[in-house]
Design a protein around this nucleic acid. Sequence first.
DNA 1: TTGAAAGCGTTACCAC
DNA 2: GTGGTAACGCTTTCAA
Lengths: 335, 335
Amino acid sequence: MKSRVTMRDVARDVGVSPMTVSRALRGDGTVSQRTRDTIRAAANRLGYVYDTTAQAFRAQKSGFVAVILPSLDNANFAATHRGLTEVLGQTGLQILLGSTNYSVVEEERIVRQLLERKPEAIILTGGHHSRDTRDLLDARDIPVVEMWDLPAEPIGHTVGFSNSDAMVGVVDQLVASGRKRFAFLGAEGDSDRRGSERCRGVCQAAERHGLKPVDVIGIGPAPVSMTEGARAVETLGARLSEYDALICVSDTVAFGALAACQRRGISVPEHLAITGFGAFEIAAVACPALTTVDVFAFDIGVAAGNMITRILSGDSSGTRLRVETGYQLRQGETS
Amino acid sequence: MKSRVTMRDVARDVGVSPMTVSRALRGDGTVSQRTRDTIRAAANRLGYVYDTTAQAFRAQKSGFVAVILPSLDNANFAATHRGLTEVLGQTGLQILLGSTNYSVVEEERIVRQLLERKPEAIILTGGHHSRDTRDLLDARDIPVVEMWDLPAEPIGHTVGFSNSDAMVGVVDQLVASGRKRFAFLGAEGDSDRRGSERCRGVCQAAERHGLKPVDVIGIGPAPVSMTEGARAVETLGARLSEYDALICVSDTVAFGALAACQRRGISVPEHLAITGFGAFEIAAVACPALTTVDVFAFDIGVAAGNMITRILSGDSSGTRLRVETGYQLRQGETS
DNA sequence: TTGAAAGCGTTACCAC
DNA sequence: GTGGTAACGCTTTCAA
């Protein structure tokens, strides 16, 4: 039963050298058709399974790409992961996945752990990392891609969009429809950096429009989702009437807020506008449909995967690649 | 810059043998405190990174556990994955993730691919696999865990619940509140096996209650979600009045149906009851809250992880383990 | 078209 | 407490 069948066993069985087996199994053209067929048949019969560990060891190429996401309990990041899987799967690269739960400390631990597997490239989320994480990555000469952001000082390559700029359209639309008094609902503190960026974008845009400062409301430690969005509305209670728009860090938060409003009989968008972020499936399905910003989460994964493929196949000529994936306002019925 | 610092380099630097470096770095007690500190310092200074590939090769232990899920774009499976990560991370095992997109053919391809990495255990979703997949796994002597189901003929160990039984409570509750005419909304065909099981459970329970046969409505190829749930209600249109309850294969489908009803002015649960499955976050947050079945997705991951840990540490004595994780009806406002 | 030898970085095993 | 030797399964390189 044990996985003890090696190329040597197959070779012995067929009566050739292990080298020939190696070539035959990888489809090397220099092996005669006859020998190759015999070898393939013997390998199947003996239950031979190729040992990628040995191959990775010998070739000093792991075939891994490390991918680090904040969380998979988030349809946006799950979509990015799907995009990456689709592209990288085609090139025979395997994803080694880590999730940080929005903590740079955890990120460092995971980067350290994944690097021990000698990935051929590493893909991080966001542009903010611990000093040690950066040093760890700088010391290696594998390609690094940061995605979901456009950091001012990227470690290596970049695939993403400006989280602050992406909010401008939301604010513009709210202002154009006569809204004046905004609250921003997002995670407490700074651990969701992309959320903080969105918040910054909202505050600046509001200021440019000459509005009163936006009330920034921390609704819980990252990650925040529907539950926190709903609870925030409950907690605000009567104070909700101070605002005419809730700008939420994500569609899940926005939906939570929307549902809580429905529960309290606050009509959206008549009494209160609500906007989300990320173009989650729920934004389009909810009734009323959420106004949101599509940031093409799946395409970010595809673009990052393609970038890696291109770099590893050698035609990047050492330049720092940068792909802007853009964003697009999706006008819904909640604003 | 290149990752070329090996134990030999560290050894040479310190003036000991590679063997001593190996021992020192792994915290083997037989190395003197002084030597160990010197070695640790030198390793850091030289930027040494442990090579897990080499270790896996030499020890013939990869440190990997293969985990195969239908999809990560599903909060339930994402939660299971999180449970697995939490447990396995503590024991130093790394997850090698594959997603099948609900296809047994794709599953076979992925199993084959992951087995080449010589995982120490493999965790599959569901009890239905291709003949070749079973053979592949039988031929290996690594522990196999099937989760999210209780197959009649498991390959190895099991962590899960009966998808058909879990629906009985839903039907009972609907019947108790006077509902009589049911439609089941799920994926077309048989690729979502757990969905098909739920459907079977519903049909049987309805029959036991002496009701008319349940209308089984395929709303699209798996995976189905909010969009398909909403579209199904649109498509049914006037025919919707033939039913007094929509039993949905998941909460996402149920929410889509609910939202579409709200859009069409069909009041839930007055005109129509709707039930979901899985206790997704949205079930509790939505207004009205969805009646659903909690199947403890996170706990399934934890239980499977613990099972693997136990088996790999040797105290399972060759028996076939089986853990029932149960389910619980969560009465909402939609039924 | 096929084969022999060497070695990738680590550690089990046995000496000392 | 420490070191030497061999080996894990494969492929690069060179030779036939």
